[in-house]
């Protein structure tokens, strides 16, 4: 049964991915002219002469002379083989330009997700069990602020405070000497030492939202009759909480990873611009500004892929947790 559900769920991803890739490719193609024409125009405007042969060669090499549909298939075919296309601005394959940034992006997203769950679980349970206590009020208030403060502004304010009061720069994901260096133990340590700032900044709003939802779900459960019955039977407070209500409230908590992951990746893009992280975010921005659309499109595709897989993971986790979902194949969701 479980296997069938997994199979069906994975199958459902395919049309979604196809539509996403078409959309991304349309975005790549939308700016008038292609990168080569822009480049040639710019060079001519600066009075430099352009090697027409080279232009023609590039045009053929990247399939710019073919029709849109053909270009699309060319692009998708490359993607399937791990070739993300060619960055015109850097005149290098996208893979090379991106390098470590991809992994660092995934690392930041992964650690932030962990952070959100680790932080919000105990706080959410505490707030629900001690509803309307001073602790609950304080945490809810902080949560609201966290929810309302866009994370890039939080990053900006933190940067300012660190610089103005402590004279330190909290930007970056590693010390400057390690950038573009091969991975060593020291580099890993440096990354770990820098990681907490972006994780905190990106994770705050997610944590706040998570706490609120867990609290609401748990409160709903705690007000149900069976909890009263359990208490009346004389079960201890911990057992009353953990045996059923917590498990029921956990479902939406797990399911939320599907919402959390895109939120975090989106947030990470702009936060990493502010904090100057060596992730894909600043690169995406630069690529968009210079209309280096292959680079930008590949990023967009990659980020969307992460999101789609995040949703898949959450659905599978949910299916493991809740037999109702895997038994009717998710039809009623």
């Amino acid at each position: 049964m479980m296997l069938r559900y997994v199979f069906r769920r994975v199958l459902m991803m395919i049309p979604t991915l196809i539509v996403i890739s078409v959309l991304v490719f349309t975005i790549i193609q939308l700016p008038p002219g292609d990168y080569l024409t822009t480049m040639v125009n710019e060079l001519q405007a600066q009075g430099e002469n352009v090697n027409q042969e080279r232009v023609a060669y590039l045009r053929e090499q990247y399939g710019l002379d073919r029709s849109g549909v053909e270009q699309y298939f060319h692009w998708v075919w490359g993607m399937l083989h791990g070739d993300m296309g060619h960055s015109f601005e850097h005149d290098k394959p996208v893979n090379e330009v991106v390098g470590d940034r991809m992994y660092l992006t995934m690392l930041v997203a992964f650690v932030t997700t962990l952070f959100v769950y680790v932080m919000s679980f105990p706080i959410g349970v505490y707030s629900a069990v001690r509803q309307y206590s001073i602790g609950d009020f304080t945490l809810s208030f902080i949560g609201f602020i966290g929810l309302a403060t866009p994370n890039f502004l939080l990053a900006l304010v933190l940067m300012y405070m660190a610089k103005a009061y402590f004279g330190t720069d909290i930007g970056g994901l590693m010390d400057a000497q390690y950038i573009d260096q091969p991975w060593t133990t020291d580099k890993v340590m440096s990354v770990l030492a820098h990681l907490w700032v972006p994780v905190l900044v990106i994770g705050t709003s997610g944590t706040a939202g998570m706490i609120r939802r867990l609290r609401a779900n748990l409160l709903d459960e705690l007000h149900k009759q069976y909890v009263v019955t359990a208490k009346a039977k004389g079960l201890g407070p911990i057992k009353v909480l953990v045996k059923y209500p917590l498990r029921m409230a956990l479902n939406p908590f797990i399911a939320d990873i599907g919402n959390l992951l895109p939120e975090m990746i989106s947030g990470a893009v702009i936060v990493s611009v502010v904090l100057g992280l060596e992730t894909t975010g600043p690169m995406l921005l630069k690529a968009l500004q210079s209309q280096d659309m292959y680079l930008a499109g590949s990023f967009l595709m990659f980020i969307s892929l992460l999101t789609v897989f995040g949703t898949l993971i959450s659905d599978l986790a949910l299916a493991v947790l809740d037999p109702r979902i895997r038994l009717d194949g998710g039809r009623n969701r």
């Binding site: 539509v19 995406l284 999101t307």
Partner: peptide
């Protein structure tokens, strides 16, 4: 439903950035 699903599976901010970057 499918359209909604696709739009929601895009990370919003990067998509928004890409779309606004192509405004002439």
């Amino acid at each position: 439903q499918r359209i909604i699903e696709v739009i929601r599976s895009f990370p919003m901010l990067p998509l928004l950035m890409a779309l606004s970057a192509i405004l002439p």
